[in-house]
Each structure stands twice: as C-alpha cells, then as structure tokens.
Amino acid sequence: MNKCHFHNVVLLTMAFLFASCLNCNALAESADEHLIKAAMVRNFARFMEWPEKTITEMEEKDLQLCVMGDDTVEQTFRKVRGKKVGNHTIVLREIDTIGGLQGCNLLFVDVSAGTDLEETLHTIQESPVLTIGETEEFTQAGGIITFFNESNRIRFQINLKAAQKAGLKISSRLLQLAVVIGQSSREHDK
C-alpha cells in the first residue's frame, strides 16, 4: 500500500474513533432526563390557560416555576430561568419547604425532594398551580401531571379532574399527547 494512503487510513480510523467517542451520546439521540423534563415543563405552560386573575399576577411577577428537588435537579432547571412562555418570562424558585409554595404558577416535585406529597399538594389545593411530578402516586394524590418512562422515552399522564379542581384549562393538543385519567363519562363519550 502506498505510504501516503496508509497514513491516511490510520488517521481516518483515529479520527473516526475519536469523533465516535465524543459523540456516542449523539448517535443514541439521548439527553439528560431532567433537562428534557425541564423543556417539557416549559411546553406544558404553553398549553395551559390560567384564570384571568393569575394571568394579571403573571404580568406583574412573571411566571413562577417552583422546583422541589435536590441540588442536581435544581441546577438543571436553572437553565429554564429567563426563558419565555408567551409574553411571560420564567422565574425559577427553588423550594425547600412547603411554606415557600405561595405564589407558584407551576410546581415540579422531583422524587429526590423527599417531601410528603399529600401534604405538599394539600397546601396548594384548589390554587391555580400546575403541579408536575414523577410518580404514579403523584396524580393519585391530586397532582395534575406526572412523568413516566416508556422504552427510555418520557411520557406523561394528566389528571384532568385535578386540573379542573385547580381552575386550569388544558389545551386539547396537550391532551392528545398524554395518557389522560380522571375524565368524566361525558368526556369519554366525546
């Protein structure tokens, strides 16, 4: 083999290996779970209709996204800070205690939060807060949306009854993508 070609083959192989190493995550089209969830939470807000009073408050205080979880989760969600949903800028609040929930428009409760779910959801019961969790128990306890994994991809379940109780209207476009629970029989008929 020509020496030049030989060198090229070696270098090409090295380049391929190097690039493959650097990008094997990309080949799998994978990403950090919490980062995807943070992006999805922002999307949920786009398909929500809050009561008029809450929207007026948002105009003054922006959209309050509250996060309960460990440092890693909070760190990931900080990347949502400052992003827009419609005309509203997202303000991130890292919540340690139930006492800090006042004024939240969206609440994400990570499994690492170690909080009493029932107690947390009871505190904001019937307030226009879009609650998002990560376990089946979350929607059972009155949470509105919960994430679940299916074939290593993120899906979500919506508790329609809980959303109605909170005074939130959910776009049918969002409902089409979700597994919906808590529908009335009339809605089923539709």
Binding site: A31, I36, L177
Partner: peptide, 14 residues
C-alpha cells in the same frame, strides 16, 4: 432542547 416542541421531546431517548 428548549426549542423543541413536545412531540420532538418525547422522541428523545433518555
């Protein structure tokens, strides 16, 4: 990721 819509996000392997 932040520019994707929900359907695109749901396709990504985690």
């Amino acid at each position: 990721l932040f520019n994707m819509d929900l359907q695109e996000l749901m396709k990504i392997e985690i």
